[in-house]
Design a protein around this nucleic acid. Sequence first.
DNA 1: GTGAAAGCGCTAACAT
DNA 2: ATGTTAGCGCTTTCAC
Lengths: 340, 340
Amino acid sequence: MPKVTLADISREAGLGKATVSRALAVEPHPDVSEETRARVKAVADRLGYRPSVTARALRAGGYHAISAVIPDNAWGWWEPAVRAAFLEAGEHGYHVLAHAVAGRPGGAASVVEDLANVPTEGILLFGSSNDTAVLRAANALRLPTVAIDDVNDEVRVPTITVDNVAGAYQATTYLIQSGRRRIAYLGSGAKSTLFERDRLAGYKKALAEHGLEVDPELVVYDTAWKWDDGETPSRSAPIEYLVDRGISFDAVFCEFDMIAAPALRSLRRAGLSVPADVAIVGFDDDLAAQLLDPQLTTIRQPYERMGRNAVRKLLAAIGGERLQPTRELEAPELIRRESA
Amino acid sequence: MPKVTLADISREAGLGKATVSRALAVEPHPDVSEETRARVKAVADRLGYRPSVTARALRAGGYHAISAVIPDNAWGWWEPAVRAAFLEAGEHGYHVLAHAVAGRPGGAASVVEDLANVPTEGILLFGSSNDTAVLRAANALRLPTVAIDDVNDEVRVPTITVDNVAGAYQATTYLIQSGRRRIAYLGSGAKSTLFERDRLAGYKKALAEHGLEVDPELVVYDTAWKWDDGETPSRSAPIEYLVDRGISFDAVFCEFDMIAAPALRSLRRAGLSVPADVAIVGFDDDLAAQLLDPQLTTIRQPYERMGRNAVRKLLAAIGGERLQPTRELEAPELIRRESA
DNA sequence: GTGAAAGCGCTAACAT
DNA sequence: ATGTTAGCGCTTTCAC
């Protein structure tokens, strides 16, 4: 299938390339007779002409596309953020190209490196691209970069993150105000990430402010949680740990929703009813939160706002604005469902 | 930030464009002295040079990229398929650009139309692009197109689909062989899609082959299921329907996993224990299947095979091969977990 | 080892 | 209303 170009049509139709171009333009050019246009279109159709996006872009000087890099362990939570990013970008005439890491050997960093061969004007880093390698790669490309929910301590690119401290504080306070006093903290513990630390801090802050002590026995970790292999945790040690040792508790704040799923299961096994015996609050408002039984009360990240904000920042940077590499915090929201 | 081009470096370094190009080439050109290369690189670095992907592509004659169009109600199940597509394409030197419909007004069709402005060589249609409008748009682009899990009756492009009849048959047979006799079918009923019909057919076939009658009372629909708004179903009428009317049943085959989630909930409310009183089998092996309690026994679509197969077909078509617009069926697999 | 020039496919000036 | 030409940024002959 030989490539059909304007020149071919021009020759075939006995018209200049310019006329053909005008006849086929996206916004119909006024200076072309209907008759000519029709003839050109007919020839183009017959020949199976497809305009070269590449040539057009070279001419126009760009694609107006930005790239979203989406990590593996982000099922559920990032969908609304990506969605919002698509919408916001679209409103500014930009395309969003989504690049899933999808278990590639080199991880997110290699995906970013690959962007060197993709016609894109900016990079949107989603989720825990916990890797300085990723940022280095992005930097090497000299492409404007904005991160959403990056968990690096060191902020090297403009970053949009939910206010984790505030969210955990909100969750814990809600539990306290519901009359709970022995509130356990269930963490993933696998990595010492920013949000793990902040959510724990918010939990402690709420306890402190309400005159409750932090009982170290109530801060437990789910050793079953697997970070990098995409596996869903199938069991939860921490609840059993508490129950087996007879450590009493009447509420659980989970570092994120996926921790809550196996916890719910363990509670049921232990004969504890939720929320009557134990109230439980998650974090993220993952899609899974609504599938659980009871449906999970959780702290929702303002995904839409985060996605749109990130795109706006990126577009501004593309426009030449100089962005500060600072972390911008977005306020989370408590979603009351059945579990607390 | 003015765009820095080869010409700029050439001027700045006092070297010809060709030399600069050679020095900066991806595969280092042998005919360039180390000294020159170093100098060129230094200048490029200082100026903040970024090669134009566009110009390179125009020169080279293409991008080697294909586009995956991902509809809204496919988030969740599509991930492994897309992942496999990424991997397979990568092995052939192709990029995959993912385009989420993400609630765009025009739906998948408008996303496909937009592909006219994206440097792509082929289209991978994911999920229920139940729309002839989508196929029309794809067709208008004259781009090779392959569909995965398309639910149109009429097959107009090469299509990879799981064998829904076989899967449902397998699930139902498994229930029968486990000693169940009163097996209910829980459908979505919202649309008369291909897979709805086929899964129901597989269910009936299994019953028939094992000498069981199809009791119309046991074929019920979840009227709560919402198709297009991305909302997760929060309740399930059908189980209540059966229980309230005293229609006995000892197993449930669900048209897909998301139907099973609320069903599980309803069963628990009704005091029915799973799988002791009622066994339940889903379809899809959605990520959610493992989060449910009990974990869902389900029919898994061979996502990896489907994704890879689709990409291979598409690449063949791009290579000039003429593909038949037929539906290719892939064999599903029963995943035994706890619910049956 | 390096440079000059052509050309990928298109569109926007600038003719006519 | 249509044709001619130049040039977007790059790589690749082909000379030197």
